[in-house]
Design a protein around this nucleic acid. Structure first.
Lengths: 265, 265
DNA sequence: TTAATAGTGTCTCTGAGACACTATGTG
DNA sequence: CACATAGTGTCTCAGAGACACTATTAA
């Protein structure tokens, strides 16, 4: 028998049937009498960074806060997590209720929980990122919602908060630490673009390679080599030609591509 | 003035001084009367995946659960978050109290919160990863703590739960969804190794390139090209030669290297 | 001396950038 | 026709793998 290290011996939790039965009974009794309110607990919310690329600009969906604290300030759509729903489910619900979107790419980003980030009480927020075709966002133009332009003050994947502006260049002073959350979303997205063509989530079902490149360039904040980009995308095996071409473009029309397995990303 | 889109007009939250004063008063009143217990709230914990590499094996620190539920089962060190501490602070405290470790590499991993992952009540757990030199772990050999060997049943960064075994090969059936959490930690770590030499966090301050390569190979679960590995590490600019060499090795001694900026990773 | 691993020099192969050239739409 | 962008072919350069060769220690 191999015994490489002097750590404590890991005896198994149970040995014979009687002991196991006693143990189960004790656990059952414990669960029945457990007082779920015995400890002070933080509040837990989800906040969703809904990102889109429109006209070569990276934009984020903002909602006006209807209540205190930070009433009337712009903020990320968010909400408290219900006890019976999963984290992902809560994010999807917030997206549906507050931004009128469903069936979009959604992934967990990071959890923010500094004491004092909310003046009311201790709030821990699990941030999610959603990527949406801008055509779907303008279809859901509703009161109290706006798209803010994301200005990234750092290069590459340095990280840090970003500046959010209106289309006229007026700064939006986001509520809470939401500018940090959007910054983290941009950092994450830039990282993913280096090894996946995830930008297609920001485009319609069929798109040209040029459009995909523009999306990548907008997110990355730098221009890319056209030839190399085409080669990489086609070599990834994730795109397939539709056989269709764009129309009415004033130059040679480009082939339209689609993603082979949307779920694979 | 540029007005590219038909979204709602983002008027600023305030206009003149009187309105601003009223607004502040309303917010202050709101904060004073807010009932922090008005909503059902989940419990929030941190769980820490303490990883180390010893003798070419990837290992994780486990503690025996002292209480129900899953009493006496092996699990990740964890604990409830206190209202006044940060998430990172809570993870560092758990590491100190339950594993006797401080001043180690620690980063947030992912947040797990499926309803039903804890039979007591709704528990949301923010998982952290810690990387430790194995010499520091065996120095903290304490009762009710053990190192489990991590067996990864998938290749690359596929992801999924992992199997944990004792050094004799007996499986540890971890409590809750902790096998999934460790799996996520391995996946994250493998991803990071592709573009950073983060493996040095699993080694003493001074180490040979061969040792670093072994650590990378153990985490990645595959062998690496020696020449290429050396070139990449030295080209990264993150390592510097100490001028010292290893001793008593039965062959030509290798140069010892150290990390230039430990905080930069 | 031999065994074993450290470390170097160099060739090849592959993928990215650069760039010239052809293709195909609109006005 | 001109113009603009799509898409291809090919050269070059940089990094990774492969491998031969030298260096240095313990036994």
């Amino acid at each position: 028998m191999k015994n490489k290290t002097p750590t404590s011996d890991p005896t198994p939790p149970t040995a014979d049937a009687d002991a196991a039965r006693d143990f189960d009974a004790a656990e059952r009794r414990f669960l029945e009498t457990y007082d779920a309110t015995a400890f002070d607990r933080p509040s837990v919310t989800v906040d969703v960074v809904v990102l889109t690329v429109r006209d070569g600009e990276l934009e984020v969906a903002l909602v006006r806060r209807p209540d205190h604290p930070h009433k009337d300030r712009w903020s990320l759509p968010g909400g408290f997590i219900r006890l019976e729903e999963s984290l992902h489910g809560a994010a999807a619900r917030v997206l549906r209720e507050k931004a009128g979107l469903s069936n979009v790419y959604l992934e967990q980003l990071y959890t923010f929980g500094e004491p004092g980030r909310d003046p009311r009480l201790r709030v821990i927020s699990i941030a999610y990122v959603a990527l949406v075709d801008p055509a779907r966002l303008s279809a859901v133009d509703r009161a109290g919602q706006v798209l803010g332009r994301v200005e990234v003050p750092w290069r590459g994947e340095t990280g840090g908060p970003v500046d959010i502006e209106s289309s006229e260049g007026r700064p939006y002073d986001l509520a809470f630490d939401h500018a940090d959350i959007v910054g983290m979303a941009v950092k994450r997205l830039r990282g993913k673009l280096d090894y996946t063509p995830i930008g297609f989530q920001l485009l319609p079902d069929a798109f040209t390679l040029r459009r995909l490149q523009t999306v990548h360039e907008t997110v990355l904040g730098r221009s890319l080599n056209k030839d190399s980009f085409r080669r990489r995308m086609l070599a990834s095996g994730l795109l397939e030609a539709t056989g269709e071409r764009e129309t009415e473009v004033g130059h040679r029309p480009a082939e339209l591509y689609r993603i082979i397995k949307r779920s694979a990303i």
